[in-house]
């Protein structure tokens, strides 16, 4: 449904760089990152604060434009998209999950999950049905009509996950999804993301410094000072940990 076409690489970046100019100072947030991310992969981008994780997330998500280099989503260069096509991409191809959940406070859980489907032009009946299914899937079947303020942090993040999946995206981008959650709730969210990754075959890219994420990741990109330090598989990380 999300895509009849299959590409080996869902995301590709070429020499991706972003420089922020603040008065006389220019800061290289990203400095030439070239990676390929496979369809269905669970990928973690790790690195200390300020290493450029979030900047990378924003570039790949089409939320910000790079200073140099290219981002391809399903082999389409997103720099070439106009505002309308970019909105279309955000609505249908990419689901976003944020550290601060970012649910719309005036809407209920059901309405929050329905929102991306409104933009994608899904009919009302179908919308409500899918929103209910998704919320049940993330374990909130009994919280459909609650507003975000009436839900705990973990529950809000579950709503956000359901919302990210609403239009059957190819990619789910999660920026510090466990950053505002306690250890146990964070683990629940990580496991939920992994299950959905396996079940639906959706590519998951998380920017995080939560080491719990390593256990479910297929590959880990270590980023430091805007550069790609190394790429490791989960096995390599645990082998290194045992040394």
């Amino acid at each position: 449904m999300a895509s009849a076409l299959r590409y080996e690489y869902t995301v590709e970046t070429e020499d991706l760089a972003k420089t922020y100019v603040m008065g006389p100072v220019s800061v290289k947030a990203l400095d030439g990152i070239s990676v390929k991310i496979r369809r269905g992969e669970y990928l973690s981008i790790m690195g200390p604060s300020g290493s450029g994780k979030t900047t990378f997330f924003n570039m790949v998500g089409g939320l910000d434009r790079p200073t140099r280099g290219k981002v391809y989503i399903d082999e389409v260069d997103i720099a070439k998209l106009d505002a309308y096509e970019l909105a279309w991409l955000r609505a249908r191809k990419i689901g976003y999950i944020f550290q601060t959940f970012n649910l719309i406070p005036v809407l209920t859980a059901m309405e929050n999950v329905s929102l991306p489907m409104i933009f994608a032009g899904v009919g009302r009946e179908e919308r409500l049905k899918r929103a209910r299914e998704l919320l049940e899937r993330v374990g909130l079947g009994n919280r459909l009509d609650h507003k975000p303020s009436e839900l705990s942090g973990g529950q809000q993040q579950r709503v956000a996950i359901a919302r990210a999946l609403a239009n059957n995206p190819v990619i789910v981008l999660a920026d510090e999804p466990t950053g505002n959650l306690d250890l146990h709730t964070g683990l629940d969210i990580i496991n939920l993301l992994k299950t959905l990754n396996t079940e639906k075959g959706v590519t998951i890219i998380t920017a995080t410094h939560d080491l719990k994420m390593i256990d479910v990741s297929d590959r880990i990109f270590w980023i430091r000072d805007g550069k790609l330090e190394r790429i490791e598989t989960r096995a390599q990380v645990s082998a290194r940990a045992e040394e």
Partner: peptide, 11 residues
């Protein structure tokens, strides 16, 4: 909220 709406595909 506006930022979020835009990430969800609002123009």
């Amino acid at each position: 909220e506006i930022g979020t709406l835009k990430t969800l595909g609002a123009e």
